[in-house]
Structures are given as C-alpha cells and as structure tokens.
C-alpha cells in the first residue's frame, strides 16, 4: 500500500511520452523474438527520419528546435509508424511515411497540440494507399518450418533489396492473419477451416498474437499509471468485442470470433497507444467513450466489409475528424446555465 502525501514531479509532455515509449517495450521485444531484428532497423530508420523532419520543420517555422525535439513526441510517431509497416519493407518506406506524418500531418497543421489527426496513422494511411505492394511483405514468424533470413541477411535486404541466393521473397513473407482471413472467406472457406491454416496460433496469427499481448501488457501499465484514460481503450475494445461476438454468434462460419479481432492487426496497439493520443482524442470522459465506441464500430465494419484488411488506422482518422464535434457535444454543462444556452 502507498500512503500520501507524495511530492511528485509534475507529468510533463516529455515524461509522459517517455513512459509511453517504455510501455511499448514488451511488445517490441516479443516482436523481435518472433520475427527477428529487422523491426529494430525499421524503428531506427523511422525515428531518425522523424527527428530530422521535426528539426527541419521547426527551423522552417522559426521555432526553437531543442525543446520540441526533446519532448519525444516525434520519436513516438516514428516508432508507431515503424510498428505498423512490414519490417522487411525497403528502407525508404518508413522514411517517407514518417517524413509525411511529421511534415504534413503535424507541422502544416501547426505542430504538436494543433494537429487534428494522429500523425502516425496519417503516415500509415499514406503508405498503404501509395505503396500497397511493399506494405504486404510481412514476415512469417520464425520457426514455422519456412526458410528464415539470418539477421545480417534481413538488414542487407532492407537496404539493397537483394535476397540470399535461392531464396524467394514469397517463401519468407505472408499476408497478415487479417488479410488471409478476408481473402479466404472471400473464396468460400469457413472461419474454422481458415484458422487451421499454419499461420494461425491459438487466438489469432502465430507470433503476432503474442506481440499484440505484449502491447496489451504495456497498455495495462499505462492505465495503472494513469497516463492514459481508461474510457478510451475500454470503449474501443468493448465495442469491437461486442460487435464481433454478436456476428460470430449468429454466423460463426463467416465472422471471426472476438478474441481473434482483439489479437489481430492493430487492435491492441491502437487501443492503448494510438487512440489515446491526448492531442487527437476528446477531452471529456463522455466524449472518450463516444470516440472509442465509434472507432471500434468503424474498425469492425472495415475489417468485415471494407476494402482493407485492417481498419484501426482509418477508424482512428475518421474519428479524429469528429473530435471537435464530440468535444462540443459532451462539454459538461456549467451549473446554473440552461442546456443549449450561449456559451
């Protein structure tokens, strides 16, 4: 048990951001464990691009460079983009995505605090729309009996695009569990048959389900440390669970079960690290529930019926757009004023 009084340092932007970064560590470690170290290279590239773009934009806007660079927010954007693209992607992919995110989605709107959209998700959306082919080269998890690239070969491929002799990119990569689910359902397989495919593990994709669990663990730390509000992840994951559960109950052959949705794609990292971005999410508690609900609903709809396998990014962007409206609607009434009165 802890007893007050405490004298704590106030939570400044950089301290919050640093904790959020720590909370990503379990997920990233599991990522490396299951898929090899290529992801670390992507993170390094994206972070470098993020800091460089941030410095350049600050300079162009005649703002002090140092304090803003030190607030870790650009760094977090870089890490989130790296985590949302395939680790074997060519080196320029994380660089272009991050540069766009920082320069256009963040600074053209006025910098940290003024950006309506989550920069990382804009970066991801730009990449998936512009380079769909590169964005599908996901690594198969290690130890699946398929050929595996050594660490050195992974790095060499990222920079030169050359694979060791006799290796096919096809044998190393696979489509994501969500993508496979969508394609195979389309071709007439049932959910249970699809989940017998070798790329699936206990809950969702082999390996990727554990990475998602790692992000969930980090997310729980953020919740307990009160760095993120509980309403957002709860409303988002709850809606996703309820909707997918309902559809799965009615038609189990054509709709994946709720836990599959939770541990696939960007659901976990989205719930705890992306939707919770304080700049682009509502400020009221009621608003946060609406926001999380909307994001969960859209994510499910896009996953089930949309043209893209995962929907977290687009759901986030669409809900980001609604934040000013949600905030206005859910603003607590000032005591003594009539509802709908002049503010």
């Amino acid at each position: 048990m802890l007893y007050s009084p405490f004298i704590t340092r106030p939570l400044t932007v950089d301290r919050i951001m640093r904790r959020v970064l720590y909370a990503l560590l379990p997920g990233i470690s599991l990522y490396v464990w299951y898929f090899g170290p290529a992801i670390l290279m992507s993170i390094a590239l994206a972070v470098t691009a993020a800091l460089a773009t941030e410095a350049l934009m600050l300079k162009l806007r005649n703002r002090p460079v140092r304090p803003f660079l030190a607030d870790y927010s650009a760094l977090l954007t870089g890490v989130l983009i790296a985590l949302s693209i395939p680790p074997l992607a060519p080196w320029w992919l994380p660089v272009v995505g991050t540069a766009f995110a920082i320069a256009v989605a963040k600074h053209l709107y006025g910098g940290l605090g003024s950006n309506p959209f989550n920069p990382a998700m804009i970066g991801y959306a730009v990449l998936i729309i512009s380079f769909p082919q590169e964005m599908t080269q996901w690594l198969s998890p290690q130890g699946m009996g398929l050929s595996v690239l050594s660490y050195g070969d992974q790095l060499r491929y990222v920079f030169s695009g050359v694979l060791p002799a006799g290796m096919q990119l096809d044998a190393l990569t696979m489509s994501t569990p969500l993508d496979t689910m969508k394609t195979q359902l389309h071709l007439g397989m049932t959910v249970s048959d699809i989940r017998d495919l070798p790329i699936y593990g206990r809950l969702a994709g082999k390996g990727s389900e554990m990475v998602a669990a790692g992000f969930a663990l980090g997310g729980l730390y953020l919740l307990i440390a009160r760095i993120i509000p509980w309403q957002l992840p709860l409303a988002f994951l709850g809606t996703l669970f309820a909707l997918s559960g309902l559809f799965h109950l009615v038609d189990p052959a054509h709709y994946a079960p709720p836990l599959f949705h939770w541990f696939s794609g960007a659901a976990m990292i989205g719930a705890f690290f992306i939707l919770t971005d304080p700049v682009t999410s509502p400020t009221t508690n009621k608003g946060r529930i609406v926001f999380g609900f909307g994001a969960g609903l859209l994510t499910f709809l896009i996953r089930a019926y949309g043209g893209f396998p995962d929907g977290v990014a687009f759901a986030t962007i669409l809900m980001n757009m609604c934040v000013p409206l949600i905030d206005a609607w859910t603003q607590p009434r000032i005591f003594g004023k009539k509802k709908g009165g002049e503010r």
Binding site: P132, Q133, T136, Q137, D170, S175, H186
Partner: peptide, 15 residues
Amino acid sequence: RKDGGMFDYMAGATV
C-alpha cells in the same frame, strides 16, 4: 504459380 500453376503473379496480389 503459388497454387502450382504456370502463371506468374506479384507478391501481395494473388487474388
């Protein structure tokens, strides 16, 4: 080719 046939395809787009 992925299904054992003779037609090429591009990684990521087999459907």
